[in-house]
Design a protein around this nucleic acid. Structure first.
Lengths: 236, 236
DNA sequence: GAATTTTCGATTGTATACGATAATAGGCAA
DNA sequence: TTGCCTATTATCGTATACAATCGAAAATTC
């Protein structure tokens, strides 16, 4: 059995393709599924008690998000971003997130600041908690902060672009991250919120760029990867 | 028969989902398929001599690009962007295209200028040509210019975002465009190339923003649409 | 013993079958 | 006629069946 470890929470009745997609995406983003893992159509189907038809639809959707690679006649695999791709993902975030901040800033009111601070509180709570599930939730929470800001831009298209970038970033961090707490920057998140609250957009942008730099600095983006990890992750 | 007018050029042997997707996308972008047109799975399947399975995959893919709306238990329709969506598409382009220009500028060499000028020449050639096919090709060529610039940024992710924005823009122009030659701005395209050649990125960005303004100015984005057109486009 | 070929098994690719849903048309009553 | 209800039909949603492909192991040859 090559495929395993998808959250069996959705074992209710009548699953649809969207739920399967979400479950797999969450598993990838929360790093329960390692990059390179094969996602066999029959195996996934059995896990959710659905036919391959729905699984294929879900896997196809994930391939558009860049989270899964579908190789013709070979199957679907959790994406295994190259160093070049990883750099491009972060380069794009550096370009987009300041733009998003500038768009979001004018519509930041007390309610928005409150919403962001609640997300910060959740991040802190998870950081102080032990265990693997808390670590996984922390990864997701860290991304959620960036997505919340994107949502405040009021631009659904930008928000969707960020959805993809944040999800793929998690994958990259899973692959190339060095420190265990790779998504460490909740203090940086707070600084950004502080700047937004003061309507100091330029400061917020500068902090955001620094923040992205720090995330990327924690990665080991040297060309070669250790072979053992690769073989492991590919599950050959 | 509700569905018709897909280019039958791909009537060779062994069509796959990707080819169907491309054929339908081209038909939408070149305005051979009006917004709102129903894309029945069986009809499209018959046109390409494939089963509904492949058609569904293609339609699903197009829905991720925002070119097609899939309504549960009702079917797929060529997207019918609302005024709000249209404005968001152009707002996003205004944000992204300057960023793209700044990214692309450093790697603009003689070869790149030449490539862009060739695209301009093609646009001019099509403009001076009569007939509906030339008009359709003109629409596509106009978008290709923006996509070529995006490709020169060297950032595949940005390029893909632009792919989507340009395709959806064509749809919006089809819906809300007033003048027949809605993608008129090939002279503006030339000015942008001129600025890029002179390494004057700021001028290029300013011209790009003006250009997008002009495209949007040609649209009739007033809330209500004339009832007749709406009925026509919905093909009821 | 190593390299090449062949065979076999597993997995994907596509078509089709069947059940479910929604739109339409027809009939009935007001 | 108009409104409502029912029945029909067409279309979609999902499962399954069968064909095609790929990879790995076994067999053969040098």
């Amino acid at each position: 059995m090559t495929t395993a470890n998808l959250d069996p929470a959705e074992n209710a009745i009548d699953i649809d393709a969207q739920q399967i997609r979400d479950a797999i995406r969450d598993a990838i983003v929360e790093r329960r599924l390692a990059p390179g893992t094969k996602l066999s159509e029959t195996d996934v189907g059995n896990l959710f008690n659905v036919s391959r038809t729905l699984v294929r639809a879900a896997l196809q959707a994930l391939s558009y998000e860049g989270l899964v690679n579908v190789e013709k006649n070979r199957g679907a695999f959790v994406a295994y971003p190259s160093v070049a791709e990883a750099q491009q993902i972060f380069a794009t975030r550096r370009l987009l997130e300041p733009v998003i901040l500038r768009e979001a800033a004018p519509s930041i009111r007390k309610a928005q600041v409150k919403e962001l601070r609640e997300l910060l509180a959740e991040e802190v709570r998870l950081t102080n908690q032990r265990g693997a599930p808390a670590r996984r939730a922390e990864i997701k929470a860290s991304g959620d902060f960036h997505l919340a800001v994107a949502a405040m831009s009021g631009n659904a298209i930008l928000k969707r672009f960020m959805d993809e970038l944040v999800a793929r970033s998690s994958l990259v961090i899973a692959l190339y991250g060095q420190s265990v707490i790779s998504s460490c920057g909740h203090s940086e998140h707070r600084q950004i919120v502080d700047a937004l609250e003061k309507k100091d957009v330029e400061a917020a942008c500068a902090l955001m760029l620094q923040h992205i730099d720090h995330i990327e600095a924690d990665l080991d983006l040297r060309p070669a990867r250790k072979g053992s990890d690769l073989k492991d992750a590919l599950q050959l």
